[in-house]
Amino acid sequence: MNKPLNIFYEEPDPDRWLPFDRYPRKLIRRVVRGKTRPGGVMMVALNLMQGLDKLRVPYRFNDYRHIKKHPEETACIIGKPHVLFEHEWKNPIVFGAGVFPHPSLQPDLLERFPNIKKILVPGPWMKEMFEPFYGDIVAGWPTGIDTDKWSPVSPVVEKKCDFLIYDKIFWERDKYVPELLEPVIATLEAGKLSYQILRYGYYNPPDLKNALDQCKAAIFLSASETQGFAYQQMLSANVPVLAWDRGGYWQDPSYYPVIKFGPVSSVPYWDERCGLKFDGINNFETQLGAFVEGIANNKFSPRHYILENLTLEKCAGEYLRIVARVEQS
């Protein structure tokens, strides 16, 4: 593909009190809070563009003037959804992977936007959730992981800590801290295994890389992930993961139990090289023992899985193939 892609991505930032007050509010936020921390959808866009840079593929970014003048060209609308809804699009559209959480929010999407040719979602279980609404135009597409940034620490460095506990428990936290997190900690302490904890949303971006440089393995506690940047960054750093993967229904309290979809996964991209899983505290101790033994026997090679499947270049290349198929259809 020689011609530039037309990529669109924006965060919603509506006026709050006065017309156009979003502009001074943005400046004030930058001064008070510092540089914006990229969220999940922003990482999809940034990592795609970084992958395209590595492949030397040109692209335009948020060039609304160009796309309006060239309705025959494909609009690659990463997200967020307001970018689709708030502009007039005459172009063929590849929409995603920064889409809305559930298709019931937009059941008439394809009637309103018949020029959507492909809907991308971050992973396989989300693809199954969207397909009954939108059919075979739904595809699973993960964005890539920066394997240069998330690289293993030098082998000459001795890691002092046994485990990083990555705490991403935010649904029913009052239930799962005493029923899951605290028993996990107690089991490690009983086995005289050292640990440190990072809680999702309560650490600075460099803290995860620093922790991975210090810890031999990770315990990943998340009810479900559409892609799972954090655990994939761990894998890229060659840190094997013991993942809580309870399966069952998607239990986002904004939708569940009115909407029941399952099974979901906390580690949707995975094979035996990545580590082991447990489905609850009842089999945690058994799986922990097998996991520790596997580490001692060099059973796991998580970085190889990422290099084989989820690099910036591989995922950007797959995006290019998706767009090419749309343009050939």
Rank of each mutant, 00 (worst) to 15 (best):
7 I>S: 01
9 Y>T: 00
11 E>R: 05
12 P>T: 00
13 D>V: 00
14 P>N: 05
14 P>I: 02
15 D>N: 09
16 R>C: 10
17 W>R: 15
17 W>Y: 15
20 F>C: 09
22 R>D: 07
23 Y>D: 14
31 V>I: 08
34 G>L: 04
35 K>V: 00
36 T>E: 10
37 R>C: 04
38 P>I: 04
40 G>L: 09
42 M>C: 08
44 V>K: 01
45 A>I: 00
46 L>V: 03
47 N>R: 10
47 N>I: 00
48 L>Q: 03
49 M>R: 06
52 L>I: 03
52 L>H: 04
52 L>P: 01
53 D>Q: 12
62 N>R: 00
70 H>N: 15
70 H>F: 06
72 E>H: 10
73 E>R: 14
75 A>T: 03
78 I>E: 13
79 G>Y: 05
80 K>A: 04
86 E>F: 02
86 E>N: 06
93 I>H: 11
94 V>K: 01
94 V>A: 02
99 V>E: 09
99 V>R: 06
100 F>C: 08
103 P>A: 05
103 P>Q: 07
105 L>V: 02
107 P>N: 15
108 D>V: 03
108 D>E: 14
109 L>M: 08
111 E>G: 06
112 R>V: 04
113 F>Q: 02
116 I>D: 04
122 P>S: 04
131 E>Q: 14
133 F>Y: 12
137 I>A: 08
141 W>T: 08
146 D>S: 01
150 W>Y: 14
155 P>A: 01
155 P>C: 00
164 L>M: 08
169 I>H: 06
174 D>K: 04
175 K>W: 11
175 K>E: 15
176 Y>D: 03
180 L>Y: 09
180 L>W: 07
182 E>H: 15
182 E>M: 15
184 V>Y: 14
190 A>Q: 10
192 K>T: 11
192 K>Q: 15
194 S>I: 11
194 S>D: 10
196 Q>P: 03
199 R>H: 03
203 Y>I: 09
205 P>S: 11
207 D>N: 05
209 K>E: 14
209 K>Y: 09
210 N>E: 15
211 A>V: 02
211 A>Y: 04
215 C>W: 02
217 A>M: 07
222 S>M: 08
232 Q>C: 05
236 S>R: 00
238 N>T: 06
241 V>Y: 14
242 L>C: 00
243 A>K: 04
244 W>P: 08
244 W>F: 13
248 G>L: 13
253 P>S: 10
253 P>K: 09
255 Y>D: 10
258 V>W: 12
258 V>A: 13
259 I>H: 13
265 S>M: 12
267 V>H: 10
268 P>W: 06
271 D>H: 03
272 E>N: 05
272 E>M: 01
274 C>I: 06
279 D>S: 12
282 N>K: 12
282 N>E: 15
282 N>M: 11
283 N>Q: 04
285 E>R: 10
288 L>A: 03
288 L>I: 02
289 G>M: 15
293 E>K: 13
297 N>K: 14
298 N>S: 13
304 H>I: 08
315 C>K: 07
317 G>T: 08
320 L>H: 06
326 V>N: 13
